[in-house]
Amino acid sequence: MKKDVDLSCIRIGTEDDLADAMALASCLLDKTSPDLDFVTRQFSSDLLVAVLLTTAYGTRDKTLAEVLFFLVDPTWDDGRQILCFFSHETQAFQQKHAALWRNGLSRKMARVTDDDAAQAMVKRCYLQWKNAFAMGGGVDVIAKPPFSIAVFDQQAVAKALEMVSGLKDDKKSGVDRVLQNAQVNEGYRVVLDARQASARLEEAKARFENLVEPISRLQIDLVLAAAMAPEDFHITPILLLGDPGIGKTYLATQLGEALGVATEKISAGGAQGGFQFTGSHVSWSGARPGSIVTLLAEGRSASPVVVIDEVDKIGASAQYPVLPVLLDLLEPNTAKRFKDQFFDMEFDASRMIFILTANSLDGVPAALLSRVEVGGCQASCRLK
């Protein structure tokens, strides 16, 4: 099997789609894990067929990397949610044979009622599939999915996990989940497909008439990014300027939805120093990881949207300044080695998309203005 395998061998939209998916699953799994018992092997095969069909009919990359990522996507709550998914999925099982097969699969999956057992079975499938895809010649694809860059260094994550394990319960509660998510897909995150993103933004112009100018600016950057390698992907931060009440913040958050990525909103005027971005050291009372590391760890994208509200109200605190942290984030060279203080861990935040808002240029630091494109937000579409 050649590298960069896509799923074009599955004839979607025909009655042959199920047979094609079964044949591909059999080809991938036949030579792996001979020690597996029949029940476990059949479970893995059935689950792979279901994921192959779902991916073949989906809108994401139709590759084995995407198939493997399906099992470790951070948006799943647990293994049980994955198994229950196929009972409700319809797009991939519209053909008669596939629909009947899916009904039988759903009954099998429903028998796995223990959450820990479901998680263990999904994990075992992941390891088997990863080995199978590597044997089939797709090892490079699995290590580095298409249009992706390494956001988290796995040695750094392992070191941070070791540190967290030694913390008191009140400080480590929930934070280990962030690091576990950072390990997903070996720390790689997918960069926006610039051409698809630009097309989605073109459609968004009709919905957000008062954002036509900044959307057009964003599209120009995306056109340039389409000609670049994923590691060179960069979008110039945009500052939305306009009177209070016209919906700048709301519309900025909707850009994330239009691009199909997660969005995080941070109030620069209300931020407690730079800690909201960087997290705070574990020695501090109430210390927590920052919002940037959490956003990148919990999503599949290297390019989520971060909306930084009211940058014209950035506090002037000399003790916990926001501006130096923000400037580091907006500068690609320093963002590549952005550091979360809680985990004492560097990671790559340079492909994130930053949308800033301000009522006027008064109060916006000159150093900040030098790093952004200023876009007007028309008042004609004032939100009610």
Rank of each mutant, 00 (worst) to 15 (best):
K2N: 15
K2E: 15
K3Q: 15
K3I: 13
D4S: 12
V5P: 00
L7F: 06
E15K: 10
L18C: 09
A25H: 04
L28F: 04
D30K: 12
K31P: 00
S33D: 15
L36W: 06
F38P: 00
V39K: 15
L53C: 06
A56Y: 03
Y57W: 08
T59F: 05
L64F: 13
Q81M: 10
I82W: 03
C84F: 01
F85E: 12
Q91N: 05
K96G: 05
L100M: 10
R102W: 01
G104M: 02
S106M: 00
D115W: 05
D116T: 15
A120M: 13
V122P: 05
K123G: 10
K123H: 08
Q128L: 13
Q128G: 02
G136I: 00
D140E: 14
I142C: 13
I142Q: 04
P146A: 11
V151P: 02
D153E: 14
Q154E: 15
Q155K: 15
A160F: 08
S165M: 09
K172H: 03
G174Y: 05
A182Q: 05
E186Q: 15
G187M: 11
Y188Q: 15
Y188R: 15
R189Y: 04
R200W: 08
E209C: 02
L211R: 01
V212N: 11
E213H: 08
I220S: 09
I235H: 05
L239D: 10
V261K: 02
A262F: 01
S267C: 03
S267F: 02
A268G: 08
G269E: 03
A271R: 05
G274C: 03
F275Q: 12
F275R: 06
F275P: 01
G279T: 11
S283A: 14
R288G: 01
I292M: 09
A297P: 01
E298D: 14
S301F: 03
A302I: 08
A302R: 05
V305K: 04
V307L: 11
D312N: 13
A316D: 11
Y320A: 09
Y320L: 02
L323N: 06
P324W: 05
D328P: 00
R337P: 00
E346A: 13
D348H: 06
S350F: 09
S350L: 11
F354M: 04
A358M: 07
S360K: 02
S360H: 02
D362E: 15
G363N: 07
G363F: 02
K384T: 06
